[in-house]
């Protein structure tokens, strides 16, 4: 695990050479803890849990890291507005840089090093071949703003939320691997505004409860939850800005290729209070797995068939399954022998 050979050389566009190793499949964050799905706030403390799982480290680094960062750079080259930070969020950017550097250096010492001598910091990122000395809190010593700098070295999208007037405001972020939402559109909106399009959940009072929880997330006590959707092809950048590039992909899905083309897309979302700015960060880390790989875990094959088969129609539409759902159900049914599944999200021990 410690050598740089661990990292894949793969693509998330065009020829889609993305692939999951058997280890990556076993540690995939399967999001369903029972044979059915409905919204829930489902938050838990983000504490180290189950060695080897994606819940073990503060900010998981996996075999896709290097290629994912290359894909991010391509997205930013085409569309710089995927990374934005309103002027008052600069301190939050430094907070974020400090949090990620200190956690990664402590949790992945073989890949990352941070040497702090007062404000003079030296950051070593071996997988990306970076060795850089800069002055903490001095923007002129970095090639990008502090948020962009660290986000070009961190898997997952990050929304940086300012907290004021008893609400959260999306005032900064790096969003290049999103499930069809736009930072450029949501920038400056508050929590209720940017969740406006989500069906059913407002009526259920979910956002009122979630906001109350988030406003009280404390420093040193991060929280996490899983969310999911489905994507055709292992494409990270399914943004509204690039809809023309991926919107028609679903028309290619048929009974023969569904297991290969359709991917379960799981977001490991976490919530952290930053110390200086008091901002809340919301990392949205995307994991992709093809249905054929998912079905190699018998429990997941059975359960996923039941979840998709019994999903309420509004949710199926919101998850982008309107056209492809019949193929998914038919394909997954071959892995469902009707036997009961064990509780919890993890694969059964072999």
């Amino acid at each position: 695990m410690t050598t740089l050979d661990f990292f894949h050389d793969e693509t998330f566009r065009d020829d889609f050479t993305y692939w999951n190793s058997p280890e990556a499949i076993r540690r995939f964050p399967f999001p369903f803890n029972e044979d059915k799905y409905m919204y829930s706030v489902n938050l838990e403390p983000h504490v180290a849990f189950k060695p080897g799982s994606v819940f073990e480290k503060s900010f998981d680094v996996d075999e896709h890291y290097v290629s994912e960062m290359r894909d991010r750079a391509l997205v930013l080259q085409e569309d710089p507005l995927r990374c934005q930070s309103l002027p008052h969020m600069n301190m939050a950017g430094w907070d974020l840089l400090e949090l990620i550097m200190t956690k990664k250096a402590a949790e992945y010492p073989e890949w990352f090093e941070l040497h702090q001598d007062g404000d003079r910091w030296r950051w070593v990122n071996r997988p990306l071949d970076i060795d850089h000395t800069f002055t903490f809190l001095d923007n002129t010593t970095l090639p990008y703003g502090p948020m962009e700098y660290i986000m070009r070295q961190t898997q997952g999208d990050y929304a940086i939320l300012d907290q004021r007037d008893n609400n959260l405001w999306m005032d900064a972020g790096m969003i290049t691997t999103q499930a069809d939402w736009s930072l450029d559109f949501d920038l400056g909106m508050n929590f209720m505004e940017w969740h406006g399009p989500v069906p059913l959940a407002h009526e259920m009072g979910i956002f009122d409860r979630a906001l109350k929880f988030l406003l009280n997330v404390r420093q040193g006590q991060p929280a996490r939850r899983l969310n999911w959707t489905m994507t055709v092809n292992p494409r990270l950048d399914t943004s509204p800005e690039r809809y023309a590039k991926w919107g028609t992909d679903r028309m290619e899905v048929n009974a023969d290729n569904v297991g290969q083309l359709m991917h379960l897309r799981v977001e490991l979302q976490s919530f952290w209070r930053l110390p200086r700015s008091n901002a809340l960060i919301f990392p949205i880390r995307c994991y992709l797995i093809s249905l054929q790989d998912l079905a190699t875990i018998p429990k997941w094959g059975r359960r996923f068939h039941r979840v998709i088969r019994d999903l309420p129609d509004e949710l199926a539409d919101y998850k982008g399954l309107t056209i492809t759902r019949p193929y998914v159900i038919e394909y997954m049914s071959q892995f469902d022998d009707g036997t009961p599944t064990s509780p919890g999200i993890f694969a059964d021990e072999e």
Binding site: H88, R218, Q219, P275, S277
Partner: peptide, 12 residues
């Protein structure tokens, strides 16, 4: 406890 900030600087 860990620090809690209910009175932070508004950088706007």
């Amino acid at each position: 406890s860990h620090p809690v900030n209910l009175f932070h600087i508004d950088r706007r």
